Simulated assay, not measured.
Amino acid sequence: MYSTQHSTPRHSTPVAEAPPVREPHHVPVAHLVRGGLTEGVHHGSVAVLGADGTVAFQLGDVEAAFYPRSALKPVQAVAMIRAGLPLEGELLSLAAASHSGEEAHLAGARRILEAAGLTEDHLRNVPDLPYDPAVRDMWLREGRPASRLAQNCSGKHAAMLHTCVLNGWSLGDYLDPAHPLQQAVAATVEDLTGQRVARVTVDGCGAPLFAVSLHGLARAVARIASAAPGTPEARVADAMRRHPETASGSRRDVAVLMRAVPGLLAKDGFEGVQVAALPDGRAVAVKIADGADRARVPVAAAALVRAGVNPALLEPFAGEPVFGGGRPVGRVRPVPALAPASLPACA
C-alpha cells in the first residue's frame, strides 16, 4: 500500500492536496470530418502552461485525478537519477522510454542490466511482443516468442533494477509500491507535479502508476524541460531530446515531433496521453477520453501552437487524413475552440 513516508527527502517545492477523484468533465477536443460533415467527436482535456507556470489555456477538466500512463516515465527517470542511477545519453533516454522493440532498444536494455550484473531473468515486467507493428510482424514470421526484454517498458524496468542494486535494495519486489524505489518515485512525482498522489494502481507493465491531474503533469514536464544544466531533471530532458528515437522508436510520431520542434521534450502514453514542453517552461498536456491516438497528435499540435510554437513547424501533425475510395476526403482535426486561426487549415 502506498505510504506518504517516502524514502527520499522531500524537495522544497510546495505540495498541494491530491487532485479530486471524480469522473473528468471532458469536452470535445477533436472532430473526425468526412466530406465536410462531422462524423465523429473525440472528447478530452487540454492544459497549456505559459513560461511563468500559469495556465495560459485549458479545455475540459485539467484538475481531476487521472492516470498519466507512460507520459509519467520522464518523472520516474528523474527519481532514479536522484537515487544515484549513473546513466547518460541513449541509455538514460531508454530508461524513460516506451520503446518500439527494435534491436537497438533491446541491446540498450541488456547493457543497463549487465552494468548492474543482472540479466533479463531479473525483470518483472510482463512479457510481450515488440510495440512497433513492423517489428512485431517480423518477430511473428521468425517464430520469436514474447519476452520481457521486448516489452516496451523494459528500459525503465532495467533502470529500476540498476537503481536498486546501487542502493542495496531488494530486487524481487522492486514493483511493490512500498519498496524504497517506488517510494522514491512517488516522492518525485509529488515534488515535480506539486501535488499529492490521488491514487496508486498497477500500470500495464506491472509498475506502480500514480494518479495526478493533467495540470500537475504539465507542471512536472515543464520543470524537467526547463531545469538548470546538470540537475537530474536536465539530464533526463537532454537525453530524451538528443535521442528521441531511443525514447520511442524510429517510426514513432513523438520522435518526429521532437525532431521538428527545436528543444522540445515530448512523451506519449497509452489511453491518449501526450505531454510536451519547451526549455523556457512552456508546456502542454493532453488526455483523449477514448484513448484514440488519431486525436492525440493533432490536439497536442494545436496546443503547442497555443503555447506559441511556430505553426509551420507543426503542419505535419495537423491531423491524419480520412480516406474514401483511396483518396483523402476529410481529416481528424482539433475543435475550433482549441485551434487558433494560425493553425494550418484542414480539409
Rank of each mutant, 00 (worst) to 15 (best):
V29H: 06
A30F: 05
H31L: 14
L32N: 13
V33P: 13
V33M: 04
R34K: 15
G35T: 04
G44V: 02
A47N: 06
G50Q: 09
A51P: 00
A51G: 11
D52W: 12
D52N: 02
D52G: 13
D52P: 01
T54H: 11
V55L: 14
Q58I: 01
L59K: 12
L59P: 12
V62G: 13
V62T: 15
A64M: 07
A65L: 09
P74N: 14
P74T: 11
V78S: 06
A79V: 04
A83H: 14
L92M: 02
L94I: 03
L94Q: 07
L94E: 12
A95T: 11
A95K: 13
A95H: 15
A96T: 03
S98W: 04
H99G: 06
S100C: 08
S100T: 01
E103L: 14
L106P: 06
A107E: 15
R110L: 09
I112V: 14
E114G: 02
A115W: 11
A116T: 08
G117N: 08
G117D: 07
L118H: 07
N125Y: 02
D128G: 07
P133K: 04
R136V: 00
D137I: 06
D137K: 11
D137F: 12
W139S: 03
L140G: 08
R141L: 11
P145G: 14
P145N: 12
A146P: 07
A146I: 03
A146V: 01
S147A: 06
R148D: 12
R148P: 03
L149M: 01
L149Q: 11
A150R: 00
N152W: 14
C153E: 09
C153M: 02
H157P: 01
M160E: 09
